[in-house]
């Protein structure tokens, strides 16, 4: 027998699944902010994020009758959000830059570079927006959305090794951007 997740919003979800607009609106109000921020990190554009948010919730409510409480609603709609965004980016044929692997030496070198940096949320967010799409997505999925490399591999249709190596590249690139920004702040 499958273990069902205890979702605190179960009554609202059940009503929403039957098409109750009021319940659907309540779910939207509960989860829109989190999903919008995920959309923004994936699409790197407010306008695109708004479009994707609408598509995500419409899809979620249309499919809600098939939601079996195997996970939380939040985890379920987060997965829909990410899949939708990635599909849209692929549809636009954007280069997600997911290719060769790198060696453990480079991973260690990145760690050293990170230790020198002063970290601030706004700087990291800005640096993320400057990453190439592929790096930004993997960085976001691992560092912010909490997926492990196995899950990222399934989402992105890549190997676990590629996920690890691309994350390392993304972190290195982000560190470079943060360092350059930090230098700029010091000079100014």
């Amino acid at each position: 027998m499958t273990q069902h997740s205890t979702d605190i919003h179960k009554p609202i979800i059940e009503k929403a699944a039957k098409g109750n607009a009021k319940a659907q609106r309540k779910l939207y109000e509960l989860y829109a902010r989190a999903m919008f921020n995920i959309c923004y990190r994936m699409m790197n554009s407010t306008e695109d994020a708004e479009d994707m948010l609408q598509e995500v919730f419409c899809e979620a409510f249309r499919r809600l009758h098939s939601f079996r409480f195997d996970s939380t609603f939040g985890a379920w709609i987060k997965r829909i959000t990410i899949n939708r965004c990635i599909n849209e980016l692929k549809r636009r044929k954007l280069n997600l830059e997911l290719n060769e692997e790198i060696t453990p030496d480079i991973i260690n070198e990145e760690q050293e570079n990170e230790d020198e940096l002063e970290l601030k949320v706004e700087h990291i967010k800005l640096a993320m927006s400057m990453l190439p799409d592929g790096y930004r997505i993997i960085f976001s999925l691992y560092m912010l959305e909490g997926y492990d490399h196995q899950e990222i591999a399934e989402i992105m249709n890549i190997t676990v090794s590629t996920s690890k190596s691309q994350l390392a590249r993304a972190k290195r690139k982000l560190t470079e951007i943060l360092k350059a920004s930090s230098m700029q702040y010091k000079l100014n």
Binding site: Q24, R25, Y28, E29, A32, R33, A34, M35, F36, N37, Y40, T46, A49, E50, L53, Q54, F57, C58, F61, V121, I124, K125, L144
Partner: peptide
């Protein structure tokens, strides 16, 4: 990191 507010009128469109 989730500093952005959901768009105004988002629910109406949905």
């Amino acid at each position: 990191f989730d500093s952005l507010d959901a768009p105004i009128g988002g629910w109406d469109a949905i």
